[in-house]
């Protein structure tokens, strides 16, 4: 691969932007580079990152999903209620269950997108509202606090890979959950790049009609992408509350915007057919880093959403400008 074609890749561009942003933040406040801060930055990537992998796959297929935060909370809450009801104390089964619930809800999206042929944005707006409304209106609104959270989950999510003691005597650890994130990322990458179902996602995003003619099963691919997004969301919902020791069914509202922003930032096209796991991971990192670093840079957190919004606009504007040049 030549140097120029490497430079043209969106992954390279966002990587360079991240490096420059890190240098800039480090200049404003060297505390940015402290190991403890780095660890918490990594930690903050995990939930957004895993969900972004699902959204990435949906976007490559030419769709979009704004329902997954609702799915995540539904899967999480039902799983916890089930654990309370049965007194089950384990880790693997609950995560499996949350994933399965997410997959089931994803199938709902896929059904409406494929069989009813409705614009994915509208469908997932609807299913998102439906699921969150059902969760809060029928199942329950009460927050499950740390004293009631199942200890196996908390213990699992507390595992650190390594830990240090900061200069202020505080303890900082690199959570082992990052391995789960990296594992999922690797799996999704391999799936997209090296399996036929992954290539069918790209083919469908490129030209659904041609994909059908070549002999891809469009229905299966559609179900696959939305179920993958739902399953990852379900898993992550449970992981999220295990990591913060607090299960609030109102949580994660509005998160879809951040995740979509991250995926687009990472070079995926909202029109489908383009995107990569590495780019998405960079996009997530960029967004999370900016959000987490405002305090370090002595900027009031109320500015957070403005900054995120501006980054989204800037990134999409650059993409739009680049695409227009390519067409011209």
């Amino acid at each position: 691969m030549t140097a120029t074609s490497l430079l043209r890749r969106p992954e390279t561009v966002i990587f360079l932007v991240i490096v420059m942003a890190m240098l800039a933040i480090g200049l404003v406040n060297p505390a940015f580079w402290q190991l403890g801060n780095m660890f918490s930055l990594v930690r903050a990537n995990i939930v957004t990152g895993i969900m972004a992998l699902g959204v990435l796959t949906v976007m490559i297929s030419g769709g979009i999903d704004v329902s997954f935060p609702a799915f995540a909370m539904m899967a999480m809450y039902l799983t916890l209620l089930w654990m309370f009801a049965t007194g089950y104390s384990g880790v693997a089964l609950p995560f499996g269950m949350a994933t399965a619930i997410g997959i089931g809800l994803g199938a709902l999206n896929a059904f409406f997108v494929h069989s009813v042929r409705m614009i994915p944005l509208i469908v997932t707006l609807g299913t998102g509202a439906l699921v969150r409304g059902f969760l809060l209106g029928v199942i329950g609104t009460s927050t499950i606090n740390i004293d009631r959270m199942p200890t196996p989950l908390i213990d699992f999510a507390r595992i650190d890979l390594l830990s240090t003691t900061g200069p202020d005597g505080g303890h900082a650890g690199l959570t082992a959950m990052v391995l789960i994130y990296l594992g999922f990322a690797l799996l999704v990458h391999l799936m997209l790049r090296h399996t036929m179902i992954g290539r069918s996602v790209f083919a469908m995003g490129g030209d659904p009609e041609a994909a059908r003619r070549v002999g891809f099963n469009i229905r299966r691919t559609t179900f696959f992408v939305y179920c993958l997004a739902g399953g990852l969301a379900g898993f992550t919902g449970l992981l999220h509350v295990s990591m913060i020791w607090l299960a609030n069914p109102h949580d994660l509202a509005g998160m879809e915007l951040d995740v979509i922003a991250a995926v687009v930032l990472g070079g995926a096209s909202i029109f489908g057919g383009r995107g990569s796991v590495l780019g998405t991971m960079f996009g997530v990192f960029m967004l999370v880093m900016v959000n987490n670093s405002l305090i370090i840079m002595h900027i009031s957190t109320t500015w957070q959403r403005v900054v995120v919004g501006v980054i989204v606009i800037a990134a999409t504007a650059v993409t739009a400008w680049r695409d227009r040049k390519r067409i011209a």
Binding site: L257, I260, A261, I270, R305, V308, G309, V310, V312, I313
Partner: peptide
């Protein structure tokens, strides 16, 4: 979609 997600945040 993307433009108004961005401006909506702003």
């Amino acid at each position: 979609i993307l433009a108004t997600i961005g401006t909506g945040q702003v």
